[in-house]
Nucleic acid binder design. Structure first.
Lengths: 194, 194
DNA sequence: ACTATACGAGACCGGGAGTCTTGTAATATC
DNA sequence: GATATTACAAGACTCCCGGTCTCGTATAGT
């Protein structure tokens, strides 16, 4: 599909790219997002500042790409037979991602930057948040076809509740996203017997 | 209760304090939190920078205090007879606060800063987020006494779901917190018949 | 060979955060 | 009233960081 037309000139250095992504994840964990500087990132990665600016629009875009690599644990959307089973699988995959060591710090940094930098905010919403909602929408759409989906709340509200609760724990209470929360969310979103 | 022991020296200027809080709210709406500078804030308020640094630890602390003033619409905790009625009153009061003109921008700024500045994050959590949770806890505790509270989810999860969903809309989707969401949250949290 | 692009290194500039200084104003105590 | 104490507005000052630019070099296609 992506048969890249090779243009003349020196090609992009993949080793530099990976060094930058790795250094970004490390540095956010070490010094926090506020302490993360482009100079520090460049020196840790052993690259020139210009190499960062050439490929990314901001520190946050570097982190977003690093996070995508860190979380390529694809959220499963296979049919598990029922809305409840599908939802449980989705939630478990989500906490597997969120509970990765440096992932919470990374998510906090990226969400913060999205509030400060409107352009990045747009990229973050359309390139990350929206994709997560669409993954969940596959599950609710299937449940609707199956006749499995409760009347209320609307699928959009399901997404608001699921992602809202997870993000709130990451940003606000800093509690772990544990299996207990998975079951509580299912209790709340899947009607008892119907 | 607060019979302040007056110390010698010129007292704090209340007019400067109010000018700073007002200017902070205006400027966040005008130039965004990222564009809000201490110099700009001081000059808009007609005060010296030192006056800001003397009373607040950061821009975000100014905003937090300004927001408290803006939202002194106290969330009602009167007993309305049932868990559902109490919860509905709480949610309606919450959206009345969140939907104030400059409130969403202010909340976004403060939550972002809480991720960047750990010290402010602690103050924000204990001085704001925790208080909101406690207000809601009054309602769930009363429901428990009344025999009105569902077994699941636990009160803590109720708070996670309520505040999480609201914050997610503010930070992520930027959808309005409307009456539709109030009813959806009640549908989700209050069991149909019990 | 020639052109085009990327690279690491680092100089450079502008702006904002935070501190400090100066001269003045307001209050308590004597 | 005199003195001590604290707050005030204004602005100078330093430091650090983001972002751009320059330089010499490296790696590709033509």
């Amino acid at each position: 599909m992506t048969e890249e037309r090779r243009s003349p000139g020196r090609p992009r250095s993949q080793s530099s790219r990976e060094a930058i992504l790795t250094a970004a994840i490390q540095l956010v964990a070490e010094v926090g997002y506020a302490g993360l500087t482009i100079d520090g990132l460049a020196s840790r990665a052993g690259v020139g500042k210009q190499t960062i600016y050439r490929w990314w629009a901001s520190k946050a875009d570097v982190l977003l790409e690093a996070g995508a690599a860190l979380a390529d644990v694809r959220v499963p959307v296979q049919d598990r037979g029922s809305y409840e089973a599908d939802l449980r699988a989705f939630l478990k995959a989500s906490y597997r991602i969120v509970n990765q060591p440096q992932m919470a710090d990374l998510l906090r940094a990226v969400m913060a930057e999205a509030q400060l930098n409107p352009d990045f905010g747009d990229r973050f919403r359309s390139g990350f948040l929206q994709r997560r909602r669409e993954a969940l929408a596959v599950i609710t759409a299937r449940a609707r076809d199956r006749g499995d989906l409760p009347e209320r709340p609307a699928p959009g509200t399901v997404a608001d509740v699921v992602f809202g609760t997870i993000w709130y724990r990451v940003l606000a209470t800093r509690q772990a996203f544990d299996k207990r929360l998975v079951e509580d969310l299912i209790t709340v979103l899947v009607p008892p017997v119907a």
